[in-house]
Design a protein around this nucleic acid. Structure first.
Length: 419
RNA sequence: GUGAUCGUAGCUCAGUUGGUUAGAGCGUCUGGUUGUGGCCCAGAAGGUCGUGGGUUCAAAUCCCAUCGUUCACCCCA
């Protein structure tokens, strides 16, 4: 048997209503904040991601689906969306047509990691990118938008964490200070953290090792070394969030792994998805557009994992989905009127009603069972002596009531069903 | 990439110290008289016991390999 690739999942009909539910909310809320949808190809030239995300990041160095196509171009299935959106912005000069571009997307992403709860190799994200403004109001708005969307799924115990990474120069300075602080403890750090010391020292804050955490308790924090402008920017973000009633907390240890972040970073965390608790993550990236060959354009964005959100919703049983109901099932009493019944079905279907009939010539009992399984609101019992009198029976499946109609009076039948 | 875990019908699982034709519940299909569902009852279909080797008179059960699952680490949404 050929199976789906490791880390990929079929979304079966029984689950599709959840996806519609999520996607509808996402589109509605983004629309309220005046975001327009953008769709980019699933694959791009490899160097876009290498340059945009950072050669040294885990995503680029060991997680991308990269291959050469038949014309020897190295292409990569998109592992995240920001670089692709920025590429499109530059390529189509969107920044010149409009001062501020507010874009959202819903799209599959690909990363070759070991699957676990809340992590797949093909997974789906929705997210947004706003390009063209330095305003801290926009940072706050982005966080509010993300929070608004996720709140609509009825999840409890959400945490919003924010931090500021400042500008690269102060961050570099800070890294040196952190190195000085950690040097005496180096031998006591966990192996993982010893590696991080050189590769990405900020990540040591994230360590799950108890001893590491103890050492980091008294470490100097990046936020203490921010320049005045970054601090002021951060102050505005916080005050807007406060007024909007977003229950945020400042997490000086919140470090994002992608190279392009500057200033504000944030995450929305849920306690009900297992170990991969970040439902959503994002931040400001003022240098990325220029880095990818565009004009100096500030940007900010976030991405949210749809599978993780659905996992949280399932664990909290927070989604209230309506049953998928069939309007009408037409039962062929004598199993001899297939063609007439099909035409009848056609009539109702073209009226926009959801109709099913039996294709297997089964017994009335079997057809009724099938109607029931389909959650049919009504059945028509077609045939028999009623048909001889040019009549047919409409049965309400919930109450069991039956009404007789003239077979030609389809309007009356439609009316009853629609009501 | 590392560690652990599990792999028996469509689904959830049972299968005793290796011993005859591998079981249950749910689901599916049919039927419980002539044209009516949800409950109930009866019957039927459905399994290369993940795959490949090995040990043994005998393997779903023991050993090895391999593929896959799940969870965690790393990292990230």
């Amino acid at each position: 048997m050929i199976k789906a690739i490791t880390g990929t999942k079929d979304i079966l009909p029984e689950d599709i209503s959840k996806w519609y539910y999520v996607e509808n909310i996402v589109r509605d809320v983004f629309s309220a904040y005046n975001y327009d949808e953008i769709r980019t190809p699933v694959f791009e030239e490899t160097r876009l991601f290498a340059r945009g995300i950072g050669e040294a990041t885990d995503i680029v160095s060991k997680e991308m689906y990269t291959f050469t196509d038949r014309s020897d171009t190295s292409v990569t299935l998109k592992p995240e969306m920001t670089a692709a959106v920025v590429r499109a912005l530059i390529e189509h000069s969107l920044d010149k047509k409009k001062a501020l571009n507010k874009l959202f997307y819903i799209s599959p992403m690909f990363r070759q990691e070991r699957p676990q709860a809340g992590r797949l190799r093909q997974f789906h994200q929705f997210g947004a990118e706003a390009l063209g403004s330095h305003s801290p109001m926009l940072d706050a708005e982005m966080i509010i938008t993300a929070y608004d969307i996720i709140s609509k799924f009825g999840l409890k115990h959400l945490q919003v964490k924010i931090n500021s990474l400042g500008v690269p120069s102060s961050r570099e300075k800070y890294k040196e200070i952190l190195k000085e602080y950690l040097n005496p403890y180096f031998g006591k750090l966990s192996q993982e953290s010893q590696k991080r010391f050189d590769i990405n020292i900020l990540r040591i804050f994230d360590s799950k090792d108890e001893n590491d955490q103890k050492i980091m308790e008294n470490a100097p924090l990046l936020i203490e070394f921010l320049d005045d402008e970054s601090l002021e920017h951060f102050e505005v973000v916080k005050s807007v969030l406060l007024k909007a009633g977003i229950p945020y907390e400042i997490d000086p240890k919140l470090v994002r792994g992608l190279d392009y972040y500057t200033h504000t970073t944030f995450e929305v965390i849920s306690g009900s998805v297992g170990s991969q608790s970040a439902l959503c993550g994002g931040g400001r990236y003022n240098l990325l557009v220029e880095q990818l060959g565009g004009k100096d354009t500030p940007g900010i964005g976030f991405a949210a994992g749809i599978e993780r959100i659905l996992l949280a919703c399932e664990n909290e049983k927070s989604l209230e989905l309506e049953d998928n109901k069939l309007d009408l099932y037409i039962v062929d009493i004598e199993r001899a009127n297939a063609e007439k019944i099909y035409n009848l079905a056609l009539y109702f279907r073209r009226k926009g009603l959801k109709i099913e009939v039996d294709y297997a010539g089964r017994s009335v009992k079997a057809q009724m069972r099938e109607a029931n399984r389909c959650n049919a609101r009504y059945t028509i019992m077609y045939g028999g002596e009623e048909l001889e009198r040019n009549e047919t029976v409409l049965k309400n499946m919930e109450t069991g009531d039956q009404k007789t109609f003239n077979i030609d009076d389809l309007d009356a039948i439609t009316k009853t069903i629609v009501e």
